[in-house]
């Protein structure tokens, strides 16, 4: 059940890849090289990687506006993702979706989503499809603490519960719904408590501990595949950067941010890999170098890719 060394190094690699990707995007964004706006996943890498490392071919994930990490964790190409964020034709969505709508349905990635909480019923539907088709697949929905106040959360959890859908609702509780801290936007400490209302299991884990996330997800997915219905997993984590790039973060203190940075999920995982003698410093450094190279190539790829032709404007509105 526990991942082997190779799998753990892959998890480490993916977390680093997300971090490098996001910091590069932040850098490019600040230079004005990326249009629109971007919400970055820095600090929350353990959640996406911990959950997605459990998934197989038939499984789906639905993501959020902060979706780059989920895509990369699900195995999406950083070149195509970067190209999409640049608005280029070689992006996953031909540049028509951008950061907030990156999707790779071929990988079971049902897309980032511009509407907070929209992914929950979508994931329930995808889980229903898997159940209906009896293919053993599950669906995972990532969503934030803010989304847990939306109707979609309640309706989707209830529906998934009564229909025993193979879906795992993964709440990335990063403590803020945009500027509003959790204690201001809801009167509970653990969002996992809400599972009780729908008669499903709810667990709360340290979202900066990738192995803890991995194990909770593994357990939930096992239940789902066994036809025992959905699980709500709350991963307590923290976004190191603002809600979006350019956010002055007036609603939280530097001390708080620094406190959380000390709990950096990648450092923690790297340290524990070293401590458990699963990997050597050299191995980790090599991975780090490879990741940097990979992201550099992704940026190169995105830059070289052309913008979509204006003739693309009205294509893909309908299936023919």
């Amino acid at each position: 059940m526990a991942p082997n060394k190779e799998e753990m190094l892959d998890m480490y690699r993916k977390m680093l890849l997300i971090r490098e990707f996001e910091e590069t995007v932040a850098n490019l964004f600040s230079q004005g090289q990326i249009p629109g706006f971007v919400h970055l996943y820095v600090g929350e890498e353990a959640v996406a990687v911990g959950v997605c490392s459990n998934l197989g071919d038939k499984d789906y994930i639905a993501s959020t506006h902060r979706g780059h990490g989920h895509g990369i964790a699900r195995g999406a190409s950083v070149e195509k993702m970067m190209a999409e964020i640049f608005g280029k034709i070689d992006g996953y969505c031909k540049g028509k979706g951008g950061s907030m709508h990156i999707a790779a349905v071929e990988l079971g990635f049902l897309g980032a989503n511009g509407i907070v909480g929209a992914g929950l019923p979508l994931a329930a539907g995808a889980a229903f499809a898997n159940k209906y088709l009896k293919n053993g697949g599950v669906a995972v929905c990532f969503f934030g603490d803010g989304a847990s106040n939306r109707a979609t959360f309640h309706e989707a959890l209830n529906l998934a519960s009564i229909w025993k859908l193979p879906v795992i609702f993964v709440c990335e509780n990063n403590m803020y719904g945009i500027s509003m801290s959790q204690e201001r936007h809801q009167n509970i400490n653990d969002i996992a408590d809400r599972a009780v209302a729908y008669g499903i299991p709810g667990v709360s884990v340290d979202g900066n501990d990738v192995m803890a996330v991995y194990e909770a997800a593994a357990e939930a997915i096992k239940r789902a595949r066994a036809g025992e219905g959905p699980t709500l997993i709350e991963c307590k984590t923290y976004r190191f950067r603002g809600h979006f790039e350019g956010d002055a973060c007036v609603y939280r203190s530097e001390e708080e941010v620094n406190e959380w940075k000390k709990k950096c999920p990648i450092q923690r995982f790297g340290t524990s890999l070293l401590e458990m003698n699963i990997a050597s410093r050299e191995e980790l450094d090599a991975i780090s170098a490879e990741v940097k190279e990979q992201i550099k190539n992704a940026v190169e790829f995105a830059r070289k890719s052309p913008y979509p032709d204006v003739s693309e404007l009205t294509t893909d509105v309908y299936c023919d």
Partner: peptide
């Protein structure tokens, strides 16, 4: 009941899940 599903009074979940299922290969 596997193909004709009564739902709770949850229009959001009805349409939202139908969209997810449609994207995942069904014809709701």
């Amino acid at each position: 009941p596997e193909r004709v599903l009564d739902t709770p009074i949850s229009e959001t979940a009805i349409v939202g899940s139908a969209v997810g299922a449609a994207a995942a290969g069904l014809r709701p």
